[in-house]
Design a protein around this nucleic acid. Structure first.
Lengths: 363, 363
DNA sequence: CTGTTAGCGCTTTCAA
DNA sequence: TTGAAAGCGCTAACAG
């Protein structure tokens, strides 16, 4: 059907079809089973002599043999493939590390990832899952680009699946998410250790798990140090630069403004920077700021560099696939809810409070 | 081997193996060929009556039949799969749109993408290609995360391949890259149209195609408007914030500083903003700035918003796969070098020059 | 130690 | 209008 026999001049044998195991067997003067055995490293078990192995390998080399994974998979009833469904790869910098982590874990197990990005479109998603199922994927990673709750297609229950950066009401699914709370604790404690006691919180108005959990961590950290939580020190806005700017402005205009700010995310933190600058404040001398997410560009452009909390995207991706492979192999457990720590990335936006000489030399 | 027969209580038949075409055929009381015909939409051609089709479809539904793509592929000698090799997905925001574009084009043709990310490691790359070849991919997209020259493994010549955001000495490969030059022309013309005549250029010291081509576009635009290119107005630095800051500083400290700056990229442009601010200059009143790349966060955080040039990542990804599918189908041509335009994104960092009353009301 | 044989699940002539 | 049969390329009993 195809006409790709244009430049076949050195090969007198014109291989309309790629060489297969039979060709190798013929050349090596063995049977196809022997070829299969040798190529799958089972030669030793069956006591095939080195000489035969050599002959086979040479033949493989000679004809440029490449085993057909579809045929092997069909026979062996495996595909060594795992499906990766994600919502919105294109518009977030978080996708890269998650995919990379997933990919690395898969690679170590000689599995391959097939990725489809649904653009958050339900029908695309359903068709994608169906396609993957037809391709005999051994399991699914269902990933979202920000931590949220999802409603899952029922088919995912039929086959090992893990939720990456999201969770479901259905607790039979394994999920891996950032430990938002402990991340916020770390950021807040960092501020507390620098001597701050009057700490504001810039909250997002988005109703997402990270919102609650980070605030919760903030409160916990205060409490554990015996600092009362003051609801007036929480200002809310959209989780972008502008929201941070406005929320921070309202806090900084308070009669007794906070000396430090924990921000829902880096973008809001950047907004807080601007609000502070507009008021002639210098960070961290007049105001300490901690962000969340460690978005590369934000920390690159804030001046001074932003102290923030890292989201463990790579690690989550890696963990997701590792757990999935466990489920597939029958070893690992399903239905577990794993949280991965969000390490603090201390940079230069945190210092001691201005009017607290006691902690001048603490940081 | 697997023990997933926990909640099989309504199904009295315990399906240790998933239903296949034979099961469907049995239930519908037809042969497997008929099932195949119906499912592949060839029923009409063969004149299979509606009633039979119905019976088959019902049976499919009943048993929850899902065609095995590996078996079909084996038989049909196709995989409907294309391999996507990329260097460094994790560390760049450009990956998302490229993958998305590739993915969308593949999706429309009912192909699926298998992606592996080599981390720029040669041995990983070679093994990845080998794995994909074994999986019978129908072609390759070889992508890099910034426009550059690559040396390609010879195997890629055996099978349709297209280079995405990179090029090779070997011109038999199709490649798609951004039209850097015309992008720079657009940015420069925008500045010229605003009335600027003394325009500086912030160049990267990286030796990459984009460096030459953007500068070339800058020169061309000047020339076409009869403005002499002044080499003293080109300052070089690393293509990051710091390099932009330094390069811009040197230009702004000139006896007769430029009234506008074209920057190799947005990060350098952000550095230029800071350099201007440090000198008490207000953008765009005292200095107009144009960037390149349209990195979301940069334009979000510069104040005023940065006028820049968009890199066509999505379009390139889409084009790459579209061309590849053409090659596979035997229609499209190989060996073509395609460039995609980089549209100007006009925002607020460009205005008329301060001391040029003639163009006060032009912009 | 090696080969024969029987499929994996599907598509596709070809014959009825 | 439908079915039987032959294989795609490989693996894995089982037999020698």
């Amino acid at each position: 059907m195809k006409d790709n026999m244009k430049d076949n001049m050195k090969d007198s044998t014109k291989p309309r079809r790629p060489p297969n195991a039979r060709d190798v067997a013929g050349l090596a003067e063995v049977s196809v089973s022997t070829v299969s055995l040798v190529l799958n490293g089972k030669a030793a078990l069956r006591g095939i002599p080195e000489a035969t192995i050599q002959r086979v390998m040479e033949a493989v080399e000679r004809v440029g043999y490449r085993p057909n994974a579809m045929a092997a998979g069909l026979r062996r009833q495996t595909s060594d493939t795992i499906g990766f469904i994600s919502d919105l790869i294109a518009t977030t910098p978080h996708a890269g590390p998650m995919i990379q982590g997933a990919q690395d874990a898969a690679w170590e197990a000689e599995k391959i990832l097939i990725i489809v990005n649904t653009g958050d479109d339900r029908s695309v998603q359903d068709r994608a899952i169906e396609m993957m199922l037809q391709r005999q994927v051994e399991g699914f990673v269902y990933a979202t680009m920000y931590h949220r709750f999802v409603e899952l297609p029922a088919v995912l229950r039929e086959i090992p699946s893990v939720l990456l950066d999201c969770r479901s009401e259905d607790t039979t699914f394994t999920s891996v998410t950032p430990d938002e709370q402990s991340g916020a604790v770390a950021a807040t404690e960092h501020l507390l250790s620098a001597g701050h006691r009057r700490i504001g919180y810039l909250q997002t108005n988005a109703r997402i798990p990270a919102a609650m959990e980070r605030l919760e961590g903030f409160k916990m950290a205060l409490q554990s140090r015996g600092v009362d939580f003051d609801p007036h020190l929480v200002a809310t806005g959209i989780d972008e630069f502008s929201g941070g700017f406005e929320a921070a402005s309202s806090l900084l205009d308070l009669p007794t403004p906070p000396s430090a700010l924990v921000c829902f995310n880096d973008r809001m933190a950047a907004g807080a920077f601007r609000a502070a600058h507009r008021r002639g404040m210098v960070i961290p001398r007049d105001l300490s700021v901690a962000g969340f997410d460690n978005e590369e560009l934000v920390s690159l452009f804030t001046d001074p560099a932003l102290t923030t909390v890292q989201l463990p995207h790579y690690e989550m991706g890696y963990w997701a696939v590792t757990n999935l492979l466990g489920q597939i192999a029958g070893t690992g457990a399903a239905g577990i809810r794993h949280r991965i720590a969000c390490p603090l990335v201390a940079r230069d936006s945190v210092g001691p409070p201005k009017d607290d000489p006691s902690s001048r030399d603490e940081n």
